[in-house]
Design a binder for these strands. Structure first.
Lengths: 133, 133
DNA sequence: GTTGACATTCCCACGATGGGAAGGTGTAAG
DNA sequence: CTTACACCTTCCCATCGTGGGAATGTCAAC
């Protein structure tokens, strides 16, 4: 299977497949006589694994860990679970940071008349020294 | 005021001050005879404005817009409000994407025994074709 | 054998930030 | 006056994950 077919089958762009190979996230693909990368079904399955992990927000190093566990038949599911839970905590931290921004912005927006006049509590708040200053 | 002092006073690193200047987000600073950048209080105020906007998750282009409104005495507060509301929507989209990941991961984690055995529904789900395949 | 669709490698870009090297400036103490 | 030190300058490189494009090579079909 060519890289293009593997790309379609896995949902990972050819560009990213080469990149993942270059950083060692996935093993180097076999090559045909003409130098084309050649993929088997198991390779595609691994690529799909990577893509789905990316869709769930795992970073490349985290995916490297997941792939290690994936191919380790003597793995403990507790290790996988721990990894997933740590990732959930990271995601929730990011959500909480973003939510904090939204809350602040909402309170500012609520104070802004939103009319033709220039007076705007949003800008005034931004220019004033804040809590951390 | 030197860049170091302006940095302390504004909470923006010297590195970022130079960067903001290089991309045209802030005007080029005056220079002393020795070539040092020199900042006045109004410059520091602008830097603080930028930092606070960054803290609220605004991108550089958005901050450029905000700075434009900030220095425009004939601005309409409605324009500022619109910009802030659009930003809130962007943030909420990101939150919703992250929350979707968390929800999926939570449901997987809930199915994982988390013991010494290798069987793990998290890995199994990642390796299987998903909704979008 | 030509054409067209693929493949290859290599370099560049993003956004926002940090690190560090190599060299210049300013100031305080010896 | 010199030396030391803290600060400044510019320049390049790295991150992370992804895309774009150029120049060149391969394969399959007609």
């Amino acid at each position: 299977m060519n890289i293009g077919e593997a790309s379609k089958a896995s949902g990972v762009s050819a560009k990213m497949i080469r990149y993942y190979e270059s950083i060692g996230l996935i093993p180097s693909a076999d090559r045909t006589g003409g130098g084309y990368r050649s993929y088997a079904d198991t390779d595609v399955q691994r690529l799909r694994f990577v893509r789905r992990a990316r869709d769930l927000g795992f970073s490349i190093p985290e995916i490297a860990d997941l792939l290690g566990l994936w191919s380790d038949r003597s793995r403990k599911s507790a290790d996988v679970k721990r990894l997933a839970q740590a990732h959930i905590e990271g995601l929730e931290q990011r959500i909480s940071d973003l939510q904090q921004m939204v809350d602040t912005l909402r309170s500012l927006v609520a104070c802004c008349a939103g009319d033709d006049r220039p007076d705007c509590p949003i800008l005034e708040t931004l220019e004033k020294p804040g809590i951390r200053d």
